[in-house]
Computed example of a mutant assay.
Amino acid sequence: MSDTALQRKNMVESQVRPSDVTDRRITAAMMKISRDRFVPSHLASFAYSDETLTIAANQAMLAPRLLAKLMQLAEAEAGDKALVVGGSCGYAAAILAQLVAKVVALLPDGETASAAAEALSAVGVDNVETTAGALTAGCPSKASYDVILIEGGVETVPDALRNQLGDGGRLVAIGVGGDVGHAFLLHKRGKLIARRDAFQASAPLLPGFEAVRPAFVF
């Protein structure tokens, strides 16, 4: 077994499985995909650590167990089309691509999108399309989506993203801004969207996903 294969195995067995991740598709995907391919070289030694990594300014890679739990919450199915918002270097998209038919990975700029595309190609993932743009706008040209995964903390989910969910679609993210953060699920049925908080979690707040606060009046 190669060093990276052993690291992947240890990551799954010591971090992911003990965190109530029971979806074997997710653990199999994490066993298969080399996480170190998706981080800058100076972070390679931390690729399999149980921590959220700061990849660049305002870009973070969720800890493996947290990403796995968030992905399990989405209940992705084989025929689904998914949108990953943020996702730093494409790792979340690579894992989700093992569970669904098609993934659109929305990155904040062209350079990041190109780096993600190269990493995805390097690990043999060919059902992810990378694109760049405002994360809060989603990717309406490819909508609608069965699953939207926001990799990062949010205080609010923009209407643009809610509107890109198809009927029966699920959006998962990590709500922050209060005393205790929670991973949550938005489930769309017809014109209604229901929210369910799932488990305590924290993540860096993604720019643009701040709640609108009333202006101070003297």
Rank of each mutant, 00 (worst) to 15 (best):
V212Y: 00
L206Y: 10
A56L: 05
L120V: 03
A76S: 10
V39E: 01
K9H: 14
G138A: 13
Q72H: 12
D80W: 09
F199Y: 13
Y48M: 09
V123G: 08
D126L: 02
M71A: 01
K69I: 11
T112C: 09
V84D: 02
A117E: 05
A28D: 15
D126N: 03
Q15R: 01
R213W: 06
N10P: 00
D126I: 09
A117Q: 10
I55F: 03
L107S: 07
S202G: 15
A60P: 04
A173Q: 09
Q72C: 01
T130I: 00
P64H: 02
V85P: 06
D109Q: 09
A143M: 07
R170F: 04
A183Q: 12
G153Y: 12
P204I: 13
G153V: 07
V39K: 04
A63I: 09
S49C: 04
I148R: 10
A119C: 00
D3F: 13
V180W: 05
P108I: 11
Q164S: 04
G87K: 09
K191S: 06
V85D: 08
Y145D: 11
D80A: 08
K142D: 15
L70D: 07
V100L: 03
V12N: 14
G138F: 04
C89S: 10
R189K: 14
A57M: 10
P214H: 11
S114V: 11
T130P: 03
K188M: 10
D167P: 04
G190R: 06
I55V: 01
D23N: 06
Y91T: 00
K69N: 05
P18H: 07
G208W: 05
R37W: 02
S2K: 11
G152R: 10
N58A: 15
E155R: 01
A116T: 04
V12P: 05
R195P: 13
P40I: 10
V147A: 08
R17L: 14
A215K: 14
A115F: 00
V157E: 13
G133F: 07
A82W: 06
G87V: 05
T136A: 12
I150K: 12
Q15M: 05
L206E: 02
A82N: 01
L185P: 09
T52C: 05
S88F: 00
D3K: 11
D23P: 02
A82M: 02
K69T: 06
P64K: 07
A113D: 10
G208C: 13
G178A: 02
S114K: 14
G175F: 13
R37N: 03
Q7G: 06
T4M: 03
R189V: 15
E75P: 08
T131N: 08
R196H: 14
A63R: 02
L67M: 10
P64G: 09
P64M: 13
P204E: 01
A134H: 04
S141Q: 14
T131R: 06
T4R: 14
S2P: 15
V172C: 12
R37L: 03
R8L: 12
V123D: 05
P214E: 03
K69S: 12
T22Q: 11
F46D: 14
V39L: 04
R170H: 13
G153T: 03
A215L: 13
Q98S: 09
I174P: 01
N163A: 13
S34Y: 12
V212W: 02
G79I: 05
T131F: 10
F46V: 01
A57W: 11
G190P: 06
A56R: 15
L206V: 07
Y91I: 00
G79Y: 14
Q15Y: 13
L66P: 08
V84G: 08
V104R: 06
